[in-house]
Computed example of a mutant assay.
Amino acid sequence: MNMRHVRAIAVFGIAVVALTGARGSHGGSCGGSSGSHGSSSGSHHDDDGTTGSSSGGSVSGGSSSSNKASRDITIDECKFDPATKNLVARITIKNDGLLDYDYDVTMKFTGAAGGTAVPATATKTAVAVAAGASQSAELTTSYPGSGDGSEYTRCEVTRASRS
């Protein structure tokens, strides 16, 4: 067996960004510490004690046609904004292709398993990104709870496409 030909496969399945600053959470884990983070383009930082800040990460993929769009997206920040009572996700879309694309992205905000957070989604459509360029976007959705948002601990890209 020649081990030089064995390659690590990049993991872009369930990439979750933890919302930090929530009471009872101990920082974000970017979806756990199973050894395969798959966040080659996102930074990983935790700002404990700062309400609304989060760690960076990558995204999950869907079908093969949407995988290309998913790979172009980096989650920069997910947070609860107490001023607007919104759940907010900030992303960067990097188009390494030779054509201009419009991206449609759907994010899901969730809490811990068995927690009280009702999954919430935010969608952004027609984010224009020129060939070889990057574009930042912000996805927001109304906070469906009545507390301080601490029950929401994660966000992830659930759908991404480009046209």
Rank of each mutant, 00 (worst) to 15 (best):
G49P: 07
K108S: 12
L87T: 04
A10K: 06
E156D: 08
S55T: 04
R7V: 11
S161D: 12
G27N: 09
S39P: 00
G147H: 01
S53V: 00
S36P: 08
A126M: 07
S163L: 06
D48H: 06
F109I: 09
G111P: 09
A117G: 07
A117C: 06
I91V: 15
G114A: 01
G57D: 12
A83M: 07
G32I: 03
G145S: 05
A133I: 00
A122D: 04
K94M: 03
R90E: 15
R162A: 02
I9A: 15
V105Y: 05
T116D: 14
T106Q: 13
S136H: 06
I91L: 14
S60E: 08
T116M: 09
Y143N: 07
R23F: 04
A130H: 08
S65D: 12
A69N: 09
G57I: 00
R23V: 12
D102R: 10
D81I: 01
E77W: 07
K79G: 14
G42T: 01
G61M: 12
G145L: 03
H26L: 15
H44K: 10
A120E: 13
G35M: 00
V157K: 12
R7C: 04
V127A: 08
S65L: 10
G49Q: 05
E138G: 00
H37Q: 11
E77C: 05
G149F: 02
G24M: 11
H44Q: 12
T153Q: 14
N2I: 06
A10V: 09
I93C: 05
S53Y: 06
R71C: 08
D102M: 05
L139M: 10
Y152P: 11
G147E: 08
A122L: 03
T121G: 08
C155V: 02
S25Y: 04
S134R: 07
S142F: 01
R162G: 03
T50F: 11
L139G: 02
L19P: 00
A8N: 09
I91N: 06
V157P: 05
G132T: 02
S43A: 13
S136V: 03
A117I: 03
G49F: 02
S34T: 02
S64K: 11
E138Q: 14
V105F: 05
